[in-house]
Amino acid sequence: MTQNCPTRTLLAETLQQELPLRQATHPHLDCEVTFRYGGFVGSVIECHAELPRAMDHARSHIARIEGESGSVPNGMVILADTMSRSKGRFTRSWHAPAGGVWGCLVHANTLLDLSKRFVPLAVGVACCEAVHAVGGDKATLRWVNDVLFGEKKVAGFLVEGFSGPRYSDEYHMVGFGINVNNRTFPEELSGSATSLVHELGREFDLTRFTTLFLAKLAWNFGLLYYEEATYLENGSYSGQDGMHQLLANWRNLSDTIGQRVVFGFDVMTSPQYEATVIGVDPDGGLRLRFDDGAVVVEHSGEIRYR
């Protein structure tokens, strides 16, 4: 018996509720078209009581399906109540006990390079929006896609590319870990991690929260395709001053701009320098100013606030 088990029916109902909300906040977009673009999210939802790691499970699944000359459903979501070998970037561990949302989305990539770079933003924005929707309106995004309460991380994401072993189709494994009802953390994470139950003082229906997150994910992935089509047609995006709408939404949820930060490709083990964030470029690059006034733009790496 799994604790976290969203269904296609539940997701469809939630998407119906999302449409008028998006129409109210994005009157300049064709929201029905955007949701149709993102309709692949949750095309299949697999729920497990326990998995070692969802992304490894997804890779094995793709290899098996392709080995049988089959086609992997785009938008497949793999969830597990607990994961025993979950990990963050590089060699970092990720604690995934009962009570959290742990899993991955299999995205069969058909985006152009100019849109692919926004995939990590899409999953971060989706999660932050879901957290806001359940009352966590103090949650913010830290570049690229960490969701924080204050300086503590409530959710983290990994996007890994993968080529199908037989047909070489390109996939994104969009891994997500959201601390919802889990209350305790290993000692090494206790100062830097938090959960919704801890921040908001109540437990959540895990299945409903995950469904809401998937609905937000459908909108944000839909935006990637909608904005790509808009750009190809008009030479600019739909946001103010031609900004990518997803990036505009990211900026509204983020408190990164203006922060004094430490930057590093792997900032935990190899911090490189300290600077002040002065903006985010149209392609998502982080614009940083050194104390001597020089400016750099980083497209890869991570930051920690000072």
Partner: peptide, 12 residues
């Protein structure tokens, strides 16, 4: 591994 905007892609 190619890393861009926290998207890590294996390079063959």
């Amino acid at each position: 591994t190619m890393s861009l905007m926290k998207r890590d892609t294996p390079v063959y």
